[in-house]
């Protein structure tokens, strides 16, 4: 291949990748700006604190924010301890539970690929009907907990694996028990990774719609307890745009609120990731 030929190919490839990237960026900026431009006028303190009126066309989203927060709380309250325990077993005790940890890791890989609507079907059949929880915030939260577990576990496990071997060796040399090593040394040291996993899981959970339609339900009243049905933000957007003629204005505003929350969550994850990596350099 002549160098002249090569130079032309180089230029061509460069041109193509640049233009594709710019096209991609501009499409997504179009999406963002559309939602910001149409949504910003609808978002106000009143919008955040008022009840929805007239099927959501007017009024605000206060009960929906509360329901979303409660669903996320239930989800994390269940998923965090189970995720932490599993991650510790997978990273620290693998050699004691060899075949089992292999099996669990496989099953989590598959679980991570399961579509959210299938989680919804399962949540409906198991939590709502078999366990008799009905359409409730608890059912929705539990369904989401199943969904975010793989993310939580993967991130936490990686955090534990990234800890220097010296930690475990020195703890063993000092005669610390396994439990004390974990509680007073490894868990605090792996905390940033756990936090990053928590935030990633939170982002996934707050974005979820399909798994919640048949588990936490549609009701847009202020939930009185965890056993009440509650509507999540994403379902509110879906319902307003699909089932409520004239609901687009408030759907835009709700979408803007949801995206803003996700931006905050994302920024948090990146800040932690950044801090964590710089901290690890110091430790090493």
């Amino acid at each position: 291949m002549s160098s002249h030929h090569q130079a032309i190919q180089d230029k061509l490839a460069m041109g193509i990748t640049w233009s594709v990237a710019m096209l991609l960026m501009s499409t997504f900026l179009w999406l963002f700006s559309d939602i910001v431009i149409h949504g910003i006028s609808g978002v106000s303190w009143e919008f955040l604190t008022a009840r929805p009126l007239n099927a959501g066309r007017e009024g605000g989203i206060a009960p929906i924010l509360v329901s979303t927060a409660l669903i996320l709380m239930v989800c994390m309250a269940i998923a965090l301890p189970i995720g932490l325990g599993t991650a510790i077993l997978l990273s620290e005790l693998t050699h004691q539970f060899g075949w089992m940890s292999n099996l669990i890791r496989r099953s989590l890989d598959v679980l991570a690929g399961i579509p959210s609507i299938v989680f919804g079907l399962f949540g409906n059949a198991f939590f709502c009907i078999t366990l008799g929880l009905g359409f409730s915030i608890v059912s929705g939260g539990l369904t989401l907990a199943c969904m975010v577990l793989p993310i939580l576990i993967r991130s936490t496990e990686e955090g534990f694996r990234a800890l220097p071997a010296d930690y475990r060796l020195s703890a063993a040399a000092l005669g610390l028990s396994q439990a004390s090593t974990l509680i007073s040394l490894l868990i605090p040291a792996a905390m940033p990774a756990m936090l990053a996993g928590f935030i990633l899981g939170l982002g996934r959970a707050i974005a979820e719609t399909a798994a919640l339609i048949f588990t936490s339900g549609y009701v847009d009243r202020m939930p009185e307890s965890l056993w009440d049905s509650g509507r999540a933000l994403s379902i509110h957007i879906y319902d307003l745009s699909m089932n409520v003629p004239g609901g687009n204005a408030n759907a835009y505003a709700t979408a803007l609120v949801l995206i803003t929350l996700l931006f905050i969550i994302n920024a948090g994850a990146q800040a932690i990731g950044h801090r964590w990596s710089s901290k690890r350099v110091l430790v090493a």
Partner: peptide, 13 residues
């Protein structure tokens, strides 16, 4: 991380 419902909504409108 953008929710699918936001993509759907944008597509719809």
């Amino acid at each position: 991380g953008i929710p699918s419902v936001v993509f759907g909504f944008w597509g719809l409108v």
